[in-house]
């Protein structure tokens, strides 16, 4: 599923990032690589999300959330 379909308070693991190469690299550099755990602290309907990755909070816009594929933490 896409991160944009995620729900507030849930934890996921990153499956893949299908975004522009330079943006993907940026996410990688921030530690958001495959299998990294992330927590959705807040998400707006058709809007951005606040996620917590490796102890840091990030605001991530909708467009990016749609390019980040995640799976449930236990999957």
């Amino acid at each position: 599923m896409k991160l944009s379909d995620g729900t507030k308070g849930s934890k996921y693991r990153i499956d893949k990032i299908l975004l522009d190469a330079s943006v993907t690299r940026r996410f990688y550099a921030l530690g958001m690589t495959q299998n990294t755990e992330l927590a959705v602290l807040n998400i707006k309907k058709s809007g951005p999300a606040i996620i917590k990755v490796r102890g840091t909070r990030f605001a991530v816009g909708r467009k990016f959330c749609e390019g980040i594929y995640v799976r449930g933490n236990g999957e």
Binding site: T56, F58, A59, V60, G61, R62, K63, F64
Partner: peptide, 10 residues
């Protein structure tokens, strides 16, 4: 905009 929001929240 080609680039969405990506910012650290301190």
């Amino acid at each position: 905009s080609l680039n969405g929001l990506l910012i650290e929240l301190p």
